[in-house]
Design a protein around this nucleic acid. Sequence first.
DNA 1: CGCAATTCGATTGCGCACAACTATATTGAG
DNA 2: CTCAATATAGTTGTGCGCAATCGAATTGCG
Lengths: 153, 153
Amino acid sequence: MSRHPQLDLDAQLCFPLYAATRAVTRAYGPLLREFGLTYPQYLTLLALWGDDEPMTVGDLGGRLRLDSGTLTPVIKRLEQAGLVTRQRDTLDERRVLVTVTAAGRDLQDQVAHIPARLVEAFGLDEDESRQLHRLLGRLLDRLDGELPESTTR
Amino acid sequence: MSRHPQLDLDAQLCFPLYAATRAVTRAYGPLLREFGLTYPQYLTLLALWGDDEPMTVGDLGGRLRLDSGTLTPVIKRLEQAGLVTRQRDTLDERRVLVTVTAAGRDLQDQVAHIPARLVEAFGLDEDESRQLHRLLGRLLDRLDGELPESTTR
DNA sequence: CGCAATTCGATTGCGCACAACTATATTGAG
DNA sequence: CTCAATATAGTTGTGCGCAATCGAATTGCG
């Protein structure tokens, strides 16, 4: 055993959080695969569907808390799949505007059943889900809150 | 806005979970970097410190819920850093035994202060931490429980 | 206006995750 | 004992995450 009880894997929050996230991502895998999507691609679409378009790469990054190094290739794959378009903003050539295509909008209806499937797989009752959601929100606010949380929302 | 309210990013558990995990990993980054470790490498050491050695690659995978495709390169980097050794089990040549070196054991004392630093950064009180831990545990049990949870624990 | 500072996105490099597959070793049925 | 089935780690290929850097566009100070 470890010389320091606080170093025990299961005694901390970090490992259960890490393992649970990967388990959830794995649970989404087969459902999203049906539509040729990965989990980060799906989240990117959720962000686009839930905001006014077009969004810039920076807007998406602020929403998803991902930088351009991660997002650029993800968006390019969504573009390749015909779900979004990318175009330089003519008013500010530094920006790239991301817009959902008709096919991308249609996908909303096809994936709309997925969240309920996952909630079922999670096996938490409504009260537990709400608590977990609240605690994760507090954690996020505390850890990411000091960052330049975009004022575009 | 989305045509389906259940597709809203923040209304679900999946995105807060995903974002919180990345925020926590980022929070560990600078603290672990001081010792030349990444977060998965740190978790791998925690698993080794917390169990009887030597552990096989499969044992580690069962503990961390990672497969050999992920663990093999992680362990090789820990070996490169002089923190663990790898050797074939002479009794069963399929297995690889991972053992912590003296330097690896010494690292325990140096990182022992890190969990408390993170707990502080999380900004959750004791009760909230316990609740979050419990809920994540339930989620993990439910999602990973059906897998061949190794009997070596 | 002129030019330094800033913004924005893309690029590069590294290290995970994981699926799919391979090679080798062990086990077990007949 | 033989050989098919299984167990185990490693390899390969794809797709994130993120730090660091770059190049181009924009802004703002003097």
